[in-house]
Design a protein around this nucleic acid. Structure first.
Lengths: 149, 149
DNA sequence: CAGGATCCCGCTAGATACTG
DNA sequence: CAGTATCTAGCGGGATCCTG
């Protein structure tokens, strides 16, 4: 292992962001995006992922603009504070766009950006995994708890 | 609610877990696994992902057993409380295994299970995304903050 | 309709000290 | 070495009221 420059380190100046490091900005970013609401918002805006039986709906991965109220209805149980806060953060990070249409009652639509869409691919996999493996995990928990005497 | 079986529902008995629903177990599970420490632990145990310049290291996705202290060193900044707590939860959920070897000073090794490995694939993508796009996000934030007068 | 502003509770994460 | 136990500050996050 003397020659570490075999395949790693492309000799170029790699930024070298490492989430394992406490001070690395990617650590904070990971903490941000590793959030229940962020994940669900991104998934909702991504479209083609409305329910567990989805697949025959709209094309998967195609951004679908949604209104605030629509998101509020989709993410069952989310408070407006958390929804607004999440959306603000996502907007600030350039993951979603916020469009205000000055209609009679103001209309606000949110849409996932291209950057957000790339993250959505990743977090959607986590959401899908959770939905697919919740039964296995539940069973494991029961077995674990039973083995604890 | 007259006919909910419009176009969705493949006619088969789908379990129908939906993280968008507040009461759905998958929602809680999503909240669990959408955790900074869980993500990092899973990534660490997954192997082949030690640093930003990885890729030429050990085969990617091959579980690498790690000791407690090794994990503690890898996840810089984690408290033993959080590390222990995270490992316990992951073990309970059947995502990692805990092996105690009664040596002179006791030796405890953790290893990711097959189930955990499948999740690791998903969360690793999130971690990689964070490391890859942290600069873009930072730039977006600066632009957003600047536009707020 | 789409939030902003507050109040406040609970739980989590961190620091510290102790142990088999 | 690999935890457990305890304490506490901080803030995540819900409820509630108000507004353009």
């Amino acid at each position: 292992m003397t020659t570490t420059s075999t395949s790693r380190r492309p000799a170029t100046d790699e930024p070298g962001y490492d989430a394992f490091q406490a001070a690395c900005p990617s650590r904070q970013l990971l903490d941000r995006i590793s959030d229940k609401w962020s994940t669900l918002v991104l998934c909702a805006l991504g479209g083609g992922d409305a329910g567990p039986a989805a697949g025959g709906g709209p094309a998967d991965g195609v951004p679908r603009p949604m209104r605030y109220s629509e998101l509020h209805r989709t993410l069952v149980g989310v408070s407006q504070k958390m929804l607004t806060q999440t959306l603000r953060t996502l907007e600030r990070d350039g993951l979603v766009t916020r469009t205000v249409t000055p209609t009679v009652p103001v209309t606000v639509t949110y849409e996932v950006t291209e950057l957000g869409l790339s993250l959505r691919t990743a977090v959607r996999a986590v959401k899908v995994w959770a939905e697919a493996n919740v039964e296995a995990v539940t069973a494991n928990r029961a077995a674990y708890d039973a083995s604890v005497d």
